[in-house]
Write a protein that binds this DNA or RNA. Structure first.
Lengths: 134, 134
DNA sequence: CCTTGACCTTCCACCTGCTGGAACCCCTAC
DNA sequence: GTAGGGGTTCCAGCAGGTGGAAGGTCAAGG
């Protein structure tokens, strides 16, 4: 199977597949003409990678998950551990973005958005106070 | 004022300040010895930048906001426009992370996390089905 | 006067995770 | 034979810094 077919079937773009080979996530064979020759398992691997990436797992986590995926004698605890840590990280990011959102929404709300130069957003970025009062 | 003092007062690390000079966000003078010589306004600018970055504004948005900050005749509408667009982007990111979180939380929840190899997380990444039932 | 240590300078490499493009090869169809 | 749609390699670049090496500067202490 050529890279284009694999890309179509796994949903991972050819460029990305080549990159994944580069960093050792997949190791396709080579045909006589120099083309990468993928097996069914490679398609499965890449699909797996695509899903893991879509859940926000880092490449390094993907590498670990892939190893566990390939290991019949894995302990599900290890998978759960990786996923839990990642989940916490996502929660942290959501919290961080949520705080940004709150502050920013308040500022946008407080700004008249007209032709006058006076602007609570600029003011807040300058002096660091949120426009809670006023 | 030397870069260390400015860093301490603005909260922006020296390395980052140099980088900001590199990309033209600040333009400190130079002392006879070659050291960067910052004025009070540079401290204010960097503080402004630090706050804007903390709110997640991109460097290019920061550049635009800085220009508006320096323009006495700005229209607050322009500031609000930039902030609103950024706010929408944050909302999109939060939504995206929220979806990841949901899926991942379900998976983590469904995983026994013991010594057995059977794992809904791995299974979901393999076959694409969430463990809604079971 | 010399040294020590904390500054400062520049430049270059690295991080994450790809993506775009150039220059080239291969294979099939017409 | 030639046009097209594959494939290949390698190099550069995105954001937004960060780390480190090699070296210059300056104030204080011996």
């Amino acid at each position: 199977m050529n890279i284009g077919d694999v890309a179509a079937r796994s949903g991972v773009p050819p460029k990305t597949i080549r990159y994944y080979e580069d960093i050792g996530l997949v190791r396709p064979e080579r045909s006589a003409n120099g083309y990468r020759a993928f097996r069914e398992t490679d398609v499965h691997k890449l699909t797996f990678l695509g899903r893991a990436r879509a859940l926000g797992f880092s490449i390094e986590n993907c590498r670990a998950l892939l190893a566990l995926w390939e290991d019949d004698r894995r302990a599900s605890a290890e998978v759960k551990r990786i996923a839990s840590i990642h989940l916490e990280e996502i929660d942290r990011k959501i919290a961080e973005l949520g705080e940004m959102r709150e502050t920013l929404a308040d500022l946008v709300d407080a700004c008249a958005g007209d032709l006058r130069p006076d602007c609570p957003i600029i003011h807040s970025l300058t002096s660091g106070s949120a426009p809670r009062d006023a």
